[in-house]
């Protein structure tokens, strides 16, 4: 039962292929970690999932719907930086998760009060209630990312996309963010795609780990070929020592 379906996905900038022939099926509620070296198209793949870019060929469908033409309510995103609105207080950032779809981008009267109360509950749950009236710039990096995740979830997306969300955090904060994310996921059962540089993080949080790499390599012209999914690990049973290869690999094996 495939929830997110990626079929024959190609993305080319100019005549430079970035990713080629990506096929993957993801069930609802799966947590997908995406790893790979720099410049191997993980972030491009995430932008394609987000519909911030449209692929040269191929398509991405969520729950069988038509491929999206622009970012929308069904996909939530948390970037490494610039994920919350700096000109809104912490509380208003959460309220924005619900109110931006309204005609004026804000609620009025009773609806506004109800949304504020819901936002305060959310903030209490994620431990940010004491800074509800502050601006995000006064928050630490970890708090800003917690806020960004809560804001994205306030819009109730069908798929949550995380682009190196903890990349700029120190190791201790990163661990507490892992707990935070795992709790939220246990609560919501949401489908998540997370791009990360950190292999340990990828296996710890993910149900599946997709590895992006270039299966073909021209030493005279490294940008000749694009990257694709070369490994697809099942990471459910506890991370690194226990991973098992899930699908056929696309790399030529040494003889």
């Amino acid at each position: 039962m495939s929830f997110v379906t990626v079929r024959d996905l190609f993305q080319t900038y100019g005549n430079r292929p970035i990713i080629e022939r990506v096929n993957v099926d993801v069930a609802e509620g799966e947590f997908i970690s995406i790893v790979g070296a720099s410049g191997c198209g993980k972030s491009t793949f995430l932008r394609l999932l987000l519909a911030q870019e449209r692929p040269t060929r191929g398509e991405i469908r969520i729950d069988g719907a038509e491929p999206a033409r622009e970012p929308g309510l069904d996909r939530g995103i948390v970037f490494q930086r610039y994920s919350v609105f700096p000109h809104m207080t912490v509380r208003d950032n959460i309220v924005a998760g619900e109110s931006f779809r309204a005609g004026w981008g804000r609620f009025f009267g009773d609806a506004a009060k109800a949304a504020r109360d819901r936002a305060d509950q959310t903030l209490a749950r994620i431990g940010l209630d004491h800074v509800a009236d502050n601006y995000p710039a006064t928050l630490s990096g970890g708090m800003q990312q917690r806020l960004a995740i809560a804001q994205a979830l306030a819009a109730k997306p069908r798929v949550l996309l995380l682009d190196e969300p903890f990349g700029a955090l120190d190791p201790g904060t990163r661990l507490s963010m892992h707990d935070f994310l795992q709790d939220l996921r246990a609560e919501t059962g949401m489908t998540v795609f997370m791009v990360t540089h950190d292999l340990e993080e990828a296996f710890k949080l993910g149900d599946r780990v997709l590895v992006f790499d270039k299966p073909r390599w021209d030493p005279h012209d490294p940008s000749r070929y694009g990257a694709t999914i070369t490994y697809d690990f099942d990471a459910r049973d506890g991370g690194i020592p226990f991973q098992t290869l899930k699908e056929n690999i696309h790399v030529p094996e040494p003889h």
Binding site: P71, G72, L73, A96, R101, G103, R106, A155
Partner: peptide, 27 residues
């Protein structure tokens, strides 16, 4: 204005108008 903020607003369901008055204008 960072592209990330405009994309984020879109994922929260904001129309061009809402992005103009709620994100770009105050910034």
């Amino acid at each position: 204005i960072p592209q990330e903020l405009l994309v984020k607003a879109q994922t929260l369901g904001a129309s061009s108008w809402v992005i103009a008055i709620r994100v770009a204008l105050p910034q």
